[in-house]
Design a protein around this nucleic acid. Structure first.
Length: 498
RNA sequence: CGGGGCGUAGCGCAGUCUGGUUAGCGCACUUGUUUUGGGAACAAGGGGUCGUGAGUUCGAAUCCCACCGCCCCGACCA
């Protein structure tokens, strides 16, 4: 294939390629509102699949859904000092509650509020208000709540899915009687995220703890899952926070223990957002557009009927309908295979490319010849340009196997891509060389001994590198911090990041 | 908020420097015919407050002034 469906290619201009993939797959578009995007049906369908799968996992771990207000009284946000400091710079503020004619044919805000509201950048404080009323006794604990919501953070520079002013997410908020229980919850949910992202989105992630200077404002510990994109930059795909008693104190979440004494509770919060879709795009897609792992594809199989007249149409469509039914009766990853027949009256080539760019795993072309032979023409998204005739029965019996294989091979490919770009660094010189120099060379993740101290920031900031995390796995090692020379009890991962 | 760029059909642009018929091109769209197994061809159509406002002029997309919006680069971030 000489011509690619997406221009520029990844190698030519990665950020522009990313935009073009989104546009070509019809996932989303910019809106009239600065920094906010419109998520179009194909993009939203991916989000719905993410929601459905995660929601099941949350329920399985004992959580229930609820909904809290969009508007947070300013005084609530002020209660936790670090929290305010962290979010103050990016809050949208509601100051009026009505509009009146401005005398020039337009409208102007009127009715100034006594106390302004902040549009939630996250909901710890407003949920804390409710939790303080809900929690009275040790019998009310643990309290395990999740909310699916939109939030707003006034960002300076936005990028579709990766960073928009308004975004969709889920935020879990839990209350526990002891710190150990709350820490266990924090780690458990990090595991839920990691399993989901790896199994469903086929994105390999590193589970880790954020260094102290990267913590969520107000948290005691912040944990994360970090993924590597195809341009070798890191993307945080989810976070889980142990909030200690900071928010419980601020919101007065107390309970009476078994001996009748009042105790302050321990809380956690954890979230993933539509940003994951950005990560999904940048992990698997190629120069022909979006590539979707089968488990997250809104349609896993698209059937394209081919015919020349009404008589042929009847025959072909009947064949397609029964094929669709047979495929849908197969279970892939616990769900019916999602099959779509595209009978739109548009040119075959254009139609094929549309589904390629949308990332559909399998495409089937069905014409008279196939009907006669009891076969179909099969094309795979991971092998654009080739198609093979396959017996109808073989396809029906083999579809689950093919989808499973595509799912695991996408993960394997992304995993080896990442592993090849993780480099052990043993001195500050090496560190500087790794990240400095030619901007166009992708450098990946640097792994080095480093102490978890604010002081090391001054070594990494000038290079526009961030400390991504202290990996949780296989990290009970000791060595000298490459920046300070102090003894470090763990290694840290560094990278340029989104 | 600093530095640069751009606003002309749904999208991408030309035209602006040097003012002058009815504002044009490609893609997309509509209709028709022929096509159709890997991005079809021909023909005929529809679609414009030239970002907004004020000015110069016989005449403004074009020149002047003000304003608005967007994009890129820097300081902040899931």
């Amino acid at each position: 294939m000489t011509k690619t469906a997406i221009t520029p290619t990844r190698a030519e201009n990665y950020p522009e390629w990313y935009q073009q993939v989104i546009s070509a797959a019809d996932l989303a578009e910019n809106s009239a509102v600065r920094g906010c995007m419109v998520i179009k049906p194909w993009g939203y369908a991916i989000w719905e699949l993410i929601q459905a799968d995660l929601d099941k996992r949350f329920k399985k771990t004992g959580h229930v859904n609820a909904y809290f207000p969009l508007l947070i009284p300013l005084s609530h946000l002020e209660k936790e000092a670090e929290h305010v400091e962290g979010f103050a710079k990016e809050c949208a503020v509601v100051t009026h509650h009505r509009l009146v004619p401005d005398g020039k044919g337009g409208l102007k805000p009127d009715g100034e509020l006594e106390e302004p509201f902040v549009i939630r950048p996250t909901s710890e404080t407003i949920i804390g208000e409710s939790f303080s009323k809900w929690v009275k006794s040790y019998r009310d604990l643990p309290l395990l709540i999740n909310q699916w919501a939109n939030v707003m953070r006034w960002e300076m520079r936005t990028r579709m899915f990766l960073r928009t002013s308004e975004f969709l997410w889920q935020e879990g908020h839990t209350v526990h009687a002891t710190d150990t229980e709350a820490v266990a919850e924090t780690i458990q949910m990090l595991g839920v995220y990691a399993d989901f992202v790896q199994d469903v989105l086929a994105m390999p992630v590193i589970k880790g703890e954020k260094p102290c200077f990267e913590r969520f404002p107000g948290a005691v510990n912040t944990y994360c899952i970090e993924a590597m994109m195809q341009d070798c930059k890191a993307l945080q795909a989810g976070t889980s926070h142990f909030l200690g008693q900071n928010f419980a104190k601020a919101s007065n979440i107390q309970f009476q223990n078994k001996s009748g004494e009042m105790e302050t509770a321990w809380t956690t919060s954890w979230g993933v957002s539509t940003r994951m879709i950005g990560g999904l795009i940048m992990t698997h897609s190629d120069d022909n557009g979006l590539v979707l792992p089968p488990r997250i594809a809104p349609y896993q199989i698209v059937i394209q009927p081919i015919y020349r007249n009404d008589e042929q149409r009847d025959t072909v469509i009947n064949y397609c309908n029964s094929l669709k039914q047979d495929l849908e009766s197969q279970l892939f990853a616990g769900n019916e295979i999602r099959v779509h027949i595209d009978d739109r009256d548009i040119q075959g080539g254009a139609k094929s490319w549309e589904w390629i760019k949308k990332g559909v795993p399998l495409r089937l072309e069905v014409g008279m010849r196939d009907v006669e032979n009891n076969a179909v023409m099969l094309s795979r998204r991971d092998d654009v340009g080739n198609k093979n005739s396959i017996a109808k029965s073989d396809l029906i019996n083999g579809a689950v196997k093919i989808l499973t294989k595509m799912q695991t091979s996408l993960f394997a490919k992304a995993e080896s891509f990442r592993n090849e770009r993780m480099t052990a660094i043993s001195s500050i010189d090496e560190f500087n060389k790794f990240f400095a120099g030619d901007k166009n060379v992708d450098r990946g993740f640097a792994v080095a001994y480093a102490v978890d101290e604010v002081g090391i920031e001054e070594f990494i900031k000038p290079l526009k590198v961030t400390a991504r995390c202290i990996p949780l796995a296989n990290n009970d090692v000791a060595g000298a911090c490459i920046f300070t020379g102090k003894p470090a009890s763990h290694k840290m991962v560094f990278a340029k990041a989104y």
